[in-house]
Design a protein around this nucleic acid. Structure first.
Lengths: 225, 225
DNA sequence: ACAAAAGTGTTGCTACTACACCCATGA
DNA sequence: TCATGGGTGTAGTAGCAACACTTTTGT
């Protein structure tokens, strides 16, 4: 039995929807290894972190100025050779957020922070491309039986906003009549007395997500389209 | 940013069905901390392990003599204080196996190896009770959309064997007519020309699981009962 | 009046649930 | 012939997929 220790990092795949496309938050590395490559925000566990979740939240906040966010642990990566400095285990996290509410700010460890469309990523450091595709797969499953989609849109949203999330994540279009019918039937959408901002065409009704109604659903719901 | 290193272990929740009940494989610790408590088999990553999966397989083999097994990564636990020796991150694995095919053998690090019914566990070391309940939850989801159930029964099985797995994992009984109909309709069961061993009552037909047919199913199948 | 997206119903079909009895075998 | 689990069918229902047009609004 080996008692030697290894390095452990916590890296986050933060996803958001921008104009109907799924985007991921990346930082540009300032130091070696992979200096000036793009990479996932994250870093080594600190002694002050009581939990791994806390470490992920702290790193995300420090490196990108993004806080107060939905986070869930994804998977751990520990293949030998994935970090040239020596064995490193990375606990990957998934974050879901509303891009518009955020003000990015690069940390001193990074020479940049930016959103990148997941379908046009730059060269990435380490095995971060694998981690991102794992996160996308998880999200695809997740929106089918959880309210994950609502973390990607504003509190008040139109049915079209919601449908766009499903289309962006699933990568295909869905029938709008069936989509509305099914979602309205679940009862988790609370109709508001407001409509979307004036556009040059017909304004759409706004809705809220009702956490309470969601919890009250029998079994696991299936939001499959 | 802290660059200090931490200990990383890989621990496995190995599950099997015995007489209709779900059981987990535990070892009795020979050394402190938690000397002579029961715990999950596992240990520190070795330099020779190319991947975390490999580390889990190696530890399981060394500590219990169980090899050649289905393994999947579950979740990582890293809360401060979960190991009295200092910060330790544990990457937990799930193993599914057929108990009857195994010959257990405790390693020199352990003073015992045994199967324990998940509903009557002894006091466990560390946070291993939490890890086991996480594994059970994962398995509950998993049998609904994957062929996981077939890893828990012999290659040749009766429909009753299969149903028993679902009942043990879901913790409730299911209607046998509907169960048979649904499973036979999927086409993943290959009817054999054999029947189960002579019993004092009517022998049951044996089946094979057809991996090929499973892969050919459209979308993700839903084995929900 | 036009451009643009919002919003709406029906039909056919599939797949699920609920439910109870006869069958085959060995002792 | 009895005990034991093996094996089967139906009817009602609910929910899904497929499908195209009318409405509302601002310009």
């Amino acid at each position: 039995m080996s008692t030697e220790t290894v390095r452990v990092t916590v890296d986050t795949v933060a996803l958001a929807i921008e104009q109907g496309a799924l985007e991921v938050l990346l930082i540009k590395r300032k130091f070696d290894p992979f200096k000036s490559s793009w990479a996932l925000p994250g870093g080594f566990i600190a002694d002050t972190d009581k939990t791994l979740d806390e470490a992920a939240a702290r790193e995300l906040l420090e490196e990108t100025n993004v806080g107060d966010v939905y986070l869930e642990q994804l998977y751990s990566f520990g293949e030998k050779g994935r970090d040239p400095r020596g064995r490193t285990v990375t606990v990957a996290y998934l974050a879901l957020l509303r891009q518009e509410e955020l003000e990015l700010k690069a940390s001193s460890d990074a020479s940049g922070v930016a959103w990148w469309p997941v379908n046009q990523l730059p060269e990435l450091a380490f095995d971060h491309a694998d981690i991102i595709s794992y996160a996308r797969k998880r999200l695809r499953y997740k929106i089918e039986y959880s309210p994950a989609a609502f973390m990607l849109i504003p509190e008040k949203f139109t049915l079209r906003d919601l449908q766009m999330v499903y289309e962006a994540v699933l990568g295909r279009s869905v029938d709008n009549r069936n989509f509305r019918k099914k979602f309205l039937n679940t009862g988790v959408l609370q109709e508001l007395d407001e409509t979307s901002q004036e556009t040059s065409f017909r304004p759409a009704r706004l809705y809220n997500f009702s956490e309470g109604e969601f919890e009250r659903l029998p079994d696991r719901p299936v939001f499959l389209f």
